[in-house]
Nucleic acid binder design. Structure first.
Lengths: 336, 336
DNA sequence: ATGAAAGCGCTAACAA
DNA sequence: TTGTTAGCGCTTTCAT
């Protein structure tokens, strides 16, 4: 069923059908109705390729994301896809994994599909080495690039992020003000936002004149599903004699591992050990007590990102950077 | 940059360029190299629309899924997208939510995009009322439909699923054999697989000559993030005097709620209460003891689904139904 | 208000 | 081995 079939059946030209389809005003109401009826009757749907060919846009946004099964990224994906669709855009998903080459390849794939824009979900798309980020510049030359949770200065690149630095700094400060002396910083990623969080932690310590001890910065290298691994990781530190009365984790799953460690070693939370996670995910509700966590307002960020994207595609001047502030949600794992 | 530009610069016809692009053998190596060089030099990428127009396929699969932020569905999405891309297909994601109308609308949207096939992820796309499923039949008239975790008889519809009936039956039997008398079945969905699980539970009871009591079948109506809600839900039953020494939950988050309930009420797990979840997700590792859970081999299912899909698209005759068997992963929440 | 026709970039059948 | 050309289904001028 094509526009030709419809035009024949309705006894008009294809141009008229096209006008009806695209809501042009220059159609006699009677003609419009006649065409509409035929369209409905045959359930005709215009061919998106042909339309795309002419307009050179298929109203499609490419979404790049390292791992759609990650709790946090999956949520982001969900919000973004919803918002895009409400604005009449489709989403092509591309999970890249965490390797550089795969990221570039996926990006090229999306660009060759003539997506109208690419959204990169997650801080891991921006590295520390400027050279490694040139692929973003290249892509931005052809379509607007939207970054969620990453900060990158480049023309045609728009960033929506949470001030992880400040959020972590605040949380650390609260722990210090509550009298904690040895706060362990537990992280698992050297991504941009990972480093920001770390910096926030360090800044809080320094402003309280506390030296940052190396043994208090611990990077867990395992997978983000391996809660048992996290537990043994902390246990090893503990047995080695590292003392800590507070833990700030860069992700909730690390915090859960910390909770499990505490329980296994009969360390009372929050009396002997206070724990703060990050992302405020469902994992915070699985332990007893429930885990305090930093909420970085993912949904708000996603909504804003799509707004900026739609604005940009409509040729409006949009802000290159939108920064939200995170917020500590206090639960039973802390006493601040 | 189009195929015409390339052909001019290379001094050949567009047909030759097209042949090089599509790896046709009928090109002199020298010519091929000449064309390739120009292509590389100018970074030319063929226009996917134009290609799609001609072939009426854009090598794109539509993925329908109620909620990409659901732990289980997100994982499925991840596996499927990966496998599809390895086979040269792109994935257009469409999160439908749990409402019927939205499902149909999303499906139509995908079909109008001329996707080569639609994958429906999750049992909630098939309802009990046959009329409600006609939209699947309609869609199957134009492209092959792949169902993950659902069973539906229709031409051009291919199902990949886990035998939830048997898995739940086995788990229930194990509990009965371990001497449990009052096993609560906790669920939250009347989807196809939800009902299968329920039936498996009932069958196990019956084969042990135990009547199925209505109060032992409890449906939690809240969101799948609301672990606290689950806890209070069970607590209410408990306070009402409902006695149970085992719980089979149709999803891990329900099992976590049950664990939290038990801890709050000083009920010892597994000595006084044994708990089994479903999906074997990361949530099983968050509690102490860790939660036994039924693993329905999601990754295997997804791999198989994509295999069947690719086979079907290549005009091979493929099985309409592939059934895996689930398996109980025993952890500390049971003593079987 | 409507129709005719050009063109979007590519593939594939047919010719040479 | 290579070139020519007719579509693919739609949008959009330009006539009428």
């Amino acid at each position: 069923m094509t526009i030709y079939d419809i035009s024949k059946k309705a006894g008009v030209s294809i141009a008229t059908v096209s006008r009806v389809l695209n809501g042009s005003t220059n159609v006699k109401p009677k003609t419009r109705k006649k065409v509409m009826d035929i369209i409905e009757q045959y359930g005709y749907k215009p061919n998106a390729f042909a339309r795309g060919l002419g307009l050179n846009s298929m109203k499609t946004i490419g979404i790049l994301c390292a791992d759609a099964s990650d709790l946090y990224l999956a949520k982001a994906l969900y919000y973004i896809e919803q918002n895009l669709r409400e604005n009449g855009y489709n989403s092509v998903l591309c999970c890249t994994g965490y390797e550089m080459d795969s990221r570039k390849e996926s990006l090229n794939l999306l660009l060759s599909q003539h997506v109208d824009s690419v959204v990169m979900v997650g801080s891991n798309f921006i590295m520390n080495n400027p050279e490694d980020n040139m692929y973003v510049n290249d892509a931005a030359a052809s379509v607007p690039i939207m970054l969620l949770n990453a900060d990158y200065d480049c023309n045609n690149v728009y960033c929506t992020l949470c001030d992880d630095y400040k959020a972590t700094q605040d949380a650390t400060e609260k722990m210090l003000n509550a009298g904690l002396k040895n706060i362990l910083y537990l992280y698992n990623s050297n991504s941009y936002s990972g480093l920001k969080k770390l910096a926030g932690y360090q800044s809080a310590l320094l402003s309280h004149d506390i030296a940052v001890k190396k043994e208090m910065l611990q990077c867990f290298k395992g997978s983000n599903e391996d809660i048992d691994g996290v537990k043994s990781f902390i246990e090893k530190l503990y047995l080695k004699g590292v003392k800590f009365d507070g833990i700030i984790a860069s992700d909730d799953f690390l915090a859960v591992g910390a909770m499990n460690f505490a329980r296994a070693n009969k360390i009372k939370v929050p009396n002997e050990l206070q724990i703060i996670g990050y992302n405020n995910s469902i994992l915070t509700h699985c332990s007893e007590p429930p885990i305090s966590s930093i909420d970085n307002r993912l949904e708000d960020m996603c909504i804003q990102l799509v707004k900026t994207l739609i604005g940009t595609l409509s040729q409006n001047e949009m802000p290159q950077k939108t920064i939200f502030s995170g917020e500590l949600v206090e639960r039973g794992s802390t006493k601040l």
